[in-house]
Design a protein around this nucleic acid. Structure first.
Lengths: 232, 232
DNA sequence: CTAACATTTTTCCAACTGGTCAAAATTCTT
DNA sequence: AAGAATTTTGACCAGTTGGAAAAATGTTAG
């Protein structure tokens, strides 16, 4: 399939506006930047929160500002007062997301004992899937759509990080401290498995016959131990 | 965040129409059902094919009939002549999908040697991810959205099948023929890992620094061997 | 060849979409 | 309390969306 051009870019005169406060600060450097209002702080918290619900469920195109506004408990124009474009809410969510996602891998210690190090990496990933399933789904949605908005970050930051850690793993394998495998595919497996519990939650629950009320906890514990042991 | 009601049901007088041919066949049982035209056969092949492109990329809500029609090389009303509702194209794709997806697990032989049996199951799954990535992504999209259209099938057919195979696996473990693990999580791991190569294709390619031209083959071979070996 | 049917195009529609704008309502500062 | 600034609302727009209806065009069995 490839391109499928979206007839987007609806407003030719886009990018002209800016958030009022920001605009003021930008055009009048003399004046003190006037700190964020209480309301501003609140709303800029509530809106991405609501948007996460909707974007993670329907993807960028499938989500509507109206929906987000409704979840956030405000009117569409009011929401647009804080985030003048749909894309900006999404961008904000995505960029936060990437930082959080890279952290666990980044913190994997090269000097530690490789086996517990990997085990704890898996655990952290699983915990993230349990505690932030919406973020996981947002990411998955973005991937499914070909990652249009984050491909460069993946190609540079993520690739470099993985290259680095893969090199460390290879070194450990050379020392015979862990079983030899392709380090990249090892990492992919970890990503895949942990993501799965968030992204395919419905399926997991349905197959295990879990009540929808029984959130995470015990299932997660089994998943963690099960997955750690299968690494052996 | 669960409900997010879409303000759908736009046409209150829906469900009134039917495909002309089908309608005729239904209301005039005397007449011979009048076999499908050449054109009908062609189009009913082309349309789901095009729809698969679009749905797998944008999900149900994000996809538009216009897009599908464009990919299929026909006008929207013409497309609607064959599939009067957007949902019907999607439904058709999804139901085909489920059959195909269950097949490999269903064919896993309870009497065979468990290890090669699992290995070949993984291989089949990986091959499916390589050869039918759009189908995989369509499924993933559906899952991310909470599987609204297939939850019952998952809860019944899939659950039963997995329960059955899990029982077999447990028996093998009792015999000490394979390492003891939670059979459900073993199966989830296989699903997760294989899906990953289709759904997160972009990420896999970016991290491995693969050219976008180099499709599947060699990467897949490594993935297969790598994943099989890590089962050991 | 032609009637009967199948297909396609054209035109149209109401609801929804992302987004604008000015006025009204609220909140903050002094 | 008053004035200034911020926040919210309501009305509105142009473009898109899923879909309907009918007219125009093709196809094909007899």
């Amino acid at each position: 399939m490839p391109p499928i051009k979206l007839k987007s870019s609806p407003s030719p005169a886009a990018a002209k506006r800016q958030h009022k406060a920001a605009a003021k600060a930008a055009t009048q450097p003399k004046e003190k930047p006037r700190p964020l209002t209480r309301i501003q702080r609140e709303k800029q918290d509530i809106i991405p929160e609501a948007a996460l619900d909707v974007f993670s469920l329907h993807g960028f195109r499938g989500a509507t500002i109206d929906q987000i506004a409704e979840v956030a408990g405000m009117s569409k124009p009011n929401l647009l007062y804080y985030f003048p474009r749909k894309e900006e809410i999404h961008r904000r969510l995505i960029s936060e997301l990437l930082v959080t996602r890279l952290a666990p891998l980044r913190e994997m210690d090269a000097d530690g004992d490789p086996f517990p190090e990997i085990r704890s990496y898996i655990r952290r990933k699983l915990e993230m899937a349990r505690d932030f399933p919406r973020e996981s789904r947002l990411f998955a949605n973005e991937m499914l759509q070909g990652a249009p908005r984050i491909i460069e970050m993946i190609e540079v930051d993520l690739k470099n990080l993985v290259d680095e850690k893969a090199a460390v793993l290879t070194a450990r394998m050379d020392q015979g401290r862990i079983t030899r495998t392709d380090p990249y595919h090892l990492i992919f497996s970890i990503w895949a498995t942990t993501q799965h519990y968030a992204d395919f939650d419905v399926q997991v629950r349905a197959v295990l016959g879990l009540s929808w009320a029984a959130k995470g906890a015990s299932r997660m514990r089994r998943a963690i131990s099960s997955n750690c042991s299968s690494m052996g």
